[in-house]
Amino acid sequence: MNEKILVVDDNDEIRNIVTLYLKNSNFEIYEASTGREALDFLRKNNISLMILDIMMPELDGIEVLKSIGNDRDYPIIFLSARSSVKDKIEGLYLGADDYLAKPFDPGELVARVIALLRRNNRKLDNNIVKIGNLSWDKYKRLIYKDENLLNLRSKEYELLTMFMTTPGKVFTKQEIYENLWQEYYFEDDNTIMVHISNLREKIEDNPKSPTKIITIRGLGYMLRKE
């Protein structure tokens, strides 16, 4: 496994035990002893999962979770000395993916980490659409060509994702225009042609001889199904 896990707890002994067990399961482990240290780390690094203690001085786990927000693609396991059902429910409602009360069995924590990563990886895989050398991450709203991020304008993104949703389908000019601009089509061929041309410049190996976005004369355009 090469998943990166951030362990956030102000208790050195707990961090050391958790780190030891997770490293024995071949995870790459990073540690933070405060909430602020954790947030600083997250600004500069990507992780696969975070183990987060709720009760910490200065900046507790709940405040850390609120700072992170919901726009994340990794799960979070809350650790807490408070073990009441009410506390567990509150932690889960706040956005935690799992909750483990202290004291806990490190082996159980490892099992929960593995289960959460397995589910999250399946979810992330379902968010990726691949057509030839194009990859669309629907969750992050990003498209890559040969693993290189494409710098797309909003209409170019909408146009390409429309094609990638149903490769091999011919979209008429009217369908393209009304999907992208949400208004009635008045034979505005030039606007569509400009956007198609700009998109070809970014995804085609040879824009003058396109092999991805194909013109179907008299009908419209389609993304070739590969």
Rank of each mutant, 00 (worst) to 15 (best):
Arg122Tyr: 00
Ile29Cys: 07
Ser25Arg: 15
Ser209Cys: 03
Met193Tyr: 06
Asp10Gln: 08
Asp40Thr: 15
Gly218Pro: 07
Leu159His: 07
Phe78Val: 11
Leu199Pro: 12
Ser83Trp: 00
Met193Ala: 15
Val85Gly: 00
Val85Asp: 06
Gly107Pro: 00
Lys173Ile: 05
Glu178Thr: 15
Met55Ile: 13
Asn127Met: 09
Ile131Arg: 13
Asp125Ile: 02
Leu100Glu: 08
Lys155Arg: 13
Thr211Tyr: 00
Gly107Trp: 00
Asn45Lys: 06
Phe78His: 09
Glu108Pro: 05
Tyr21Phe: 13
Asp87Met: 07
Asn190His: 10
Arg36Glu: 13
Thr172Met: 05
Gly61Trp: 04
Pro207Arg: 09
Glu90Ile: 08
Leu6Phe: 01
Ala111Val: 11
Ile214Ser: 04
Val18Gln: 11
Tyr185Lys: 07
Arg122Ile: 10
Lys169Cys: 04
Ser67Ala: 15
Ile62Tyr: 14
Arg82Val: 13
Ala115Ile: 10
Thr166Ala: 12
Leu149Lys: 14
Ala32Thr: 12
Asn151Trp: 02
Pro75Arg: 10
Met162Gly: 07
Pro103Asp: 05
Met56Gly: 05
Ala81Met: 08
Pro106Tyr: 02
Trp181Val: 12
Pro106Thr: 06
Ile114Arg: 14
Ala81Ile: 12
Asn133Phe: 05
Glu108Leu: 13
Val7Leu: 08
Asn190Gly: 01
Arg153Tyr: 05
Leu142Phe: 04
Ile5Tyr: 00
Ile5Thr: 02
Ser197Tyr: 13
Asp125Ala: 09
Trp181Tyr: 14
Arg72Phe: 02
Asn198Gly: 11
Arg224Phe: 01
Ser67Gly: 02
Glu58Thr: 12
Asn179Cys: 05
Asp73Val: 09
Glu63Trp: 01
Leu199Cys: 10
Thr215Glu: 11
Tyr157Gly: 09
Asn206Ala: 12
Glu183Leu: 04
Lys208Phe: 04
Glu63Phe: 03
Ile17Met: 09
Lys155Thr: 15
Asp146Pro: 08
Asn16Ser: 15
Leu52Trp: 04
Gly91Pro: 06
Arg15Cys: 15
Leu39Ile: 12
Ala101Gly: 10
Asn127Gly: 00
